[in-house]
């Protein structure tokens, strides 16, 4: 078969295909919602009404803004605590064999525990408040950043480390100018995984017990058998998660300017 003409290729570019897929999905949704039980599959109009209700009069104890803000704040705080502890420990483990000997077994023990298995303990210790959520996020988001920071430090080119040493780098310069930037790409990919894990853990924790938040909206809507609201809350979770991941990408490009410049 002949290759597609340049015009064809530009028309069939990724945005066009993506847009067509979204439209197709909406049509399929509308058609299936028409032909099945409306109590199980909400129609697009139901979802819109639910969104308007949540945004204006509120639902499950708060408006969309209140729930979203609560979730974003908790996800961010949990993520910050996780990153703030995983980074220094990962750096220490990467740079010192004795730190690796101390933390290695602890990490190996924590690592296989599913994040949700922390929730019962979190509720006993912290109740249904913010502390429990931050605790669960911490233990979920901690490991990816830790492992990547550790690996990032260990994979810094030894010749570059030697070159920095022979040109006079002391421990401070070595950390700031060599180890951190050398490990940065892997650290950021660890942070990205941790951020996604933060959202996952938060929503799960809120589903089980919360006074506020998007997970609380989801749970209440399930009890009320209100599928339109469920879809709204899920969409809000998706938008928040995607936005935070995008923001992290912005920070990453800011921090790693040498990676985007090409010859």
């Amino acid at each position: 078969m002949a290759a597609a003409s340049p015009l064809h290729r530009s028309l069939l570019g990724a945005p066009v295909i993506g847009g067509a897929a979204v439209v197709g999905f909406l049509i399929a949704w509308w058609v299936s919602a028409k032909s099945f039980d409306p109590m199980r599959i909400p129609q697009p109009g139901d979802v819109w009404d639910a969104a308007v209700q949540l945004a204006t009069t509120g639902y499950a104890g708060g408006t969309l803004a209140q729930h979203t803000l609560q979730s974003i704040m908790l996800a961010f705080m949990g993520f910050a605590v996780a990153a703030g502890t995983a980074l220094p420990i990962g750096l220490a483990m990467g740079m010192s064999r004795s730190a690796e000997a101390v933390f290695g077994p602890i990490v190996a023990f924590i690592r296989p525990i599913p994040p949700l298995a922390w929730i019962p303990l979190a509720i006993i210790w912290f109740g249904l408040g913010d502390g429990a959520k931050i605790f669960v996020i911490w233990f979920t988001a901690f490991v990816p950043t830790l492992i990547n920071t550790f690996t990032g430090v260990r994979t810094v080119d030894p010749t570059i480390i030697a070159a920095a040493r022979v040109h006079g780098a002391g421990p401070r310069r070595m950390l700031l100018d060599v180890i951190l930037p050398g490990a940065a790409p892997l650290i950021f990919s660890g942070l990205r995984v941790s951020l996604q894990a933060s959202w996952m853990a938060l929503v799960a924790a809120e589903l089980i017990g919360a006074f506020f938040g998007l997970g609380r909206v989801l749970m209440t809507a399930a009890q009320d058998i209100f599928p339109g609201m469920i879809v709204v809350a899920m969409a809000a979770v998706a938008v928040c998660g995607a936005t935070m991941t995008w923001l992290l990408g912005v920070v990453e490009r800011r921090c790693l300017p040498w990676l985007k410049v090409t010859p």
């Binding site: 080119d157 010749t159 070159a163 920095a164 040109h167 006079g168 310069r173 100018d177």
Partner: peptide
Amino acid sequence: FQQFALLPWKTVRQNIGFGLKCR
């Protein structure tokens, strides 16, 4: 070094001045 061993995240100026900065 054979493999140059420059700091990829530093500009040419920063690489040349690295040892001075360390001092």
